[in-house]
Amino acid sequence: MWKWLHPYANPEVAYHFTGKLIPWFNIIAALLLVVGMFMGLAYSPADYQQGETVRIFYIHVPAAILSMGLYFSMAIAGFCALVWQLKLAHAAIAAIAPIGAAFTAIALITGAAWGKPMWGTWWIWDARLTSELILLFLYLGVIALGNAFDDKNQGAKAVSVLALVGVVNLPIIHYSVEWWNTLHQGATVTKFAAPSMAMSMYIPFVICFFGFAFLAGSLICKRFQGQVLARNSLRPWVKKMALAEEH
């Protein structure tokens, strides 16, 4: 396996490989999001209790799942960065953090806009909402720490440690609704059981989820490319590319 993976640890190879992925990710994301948003907004039925507000589900839940999934992948990158001192893993952390922060913000904002009409409040300091807010702060911390050093390779270790340590928050977010009394309800789709959701609502959710996931993938690849360039700016292939783009 290592033999097979080894060439991808070469920054130049990784740069071109992610470059090839981006257009495909974009096409898949666009298709899925157009279909998913249409189904979610206009085609899927209203909920028997919550009426039309259930349409917020198709953004809120994919964003929340991605906010945690992306953090997990960032923590894995942090682990690889610390153990193998892989420079590409540092680039991956810096690429993932802003995307994850954006999806966390989306989950929080859509959650507030859903909570106001259904619960009667925009915000409550219950365990689920608070732990998701802490996730946002963790992302912002990783971003800020990464920008604090002029030389990108210098602060990399601190960033990796923060990304890795923050992973303890993930089980807290997920199990908060079971461990404590919360206003937020339990899991609908992220559990080892059939989703507590009618098929006519589950299908648009799945489509939207993969749409957002591929969009996140494409944006992460782009940021990763930028990070690889910035961290290898002394290499001849990067210099050549920089000078070739001059008009």
């Binding site: 259904m118 619960w119 009667g120 206003l183 309800q185 339990g186 609908t188 959701m197 006519s200």
Partner: peptide, 13 residues
């Protein structure tokens, strides 16, 4: 203040 707590089940009417 009275807040409503709902369950995690979603289905059409």
């Amino acid at each position: 203040e009275v807040l409503a707590k709902h369950d995690e089940e979603y289905m059409p009417k």
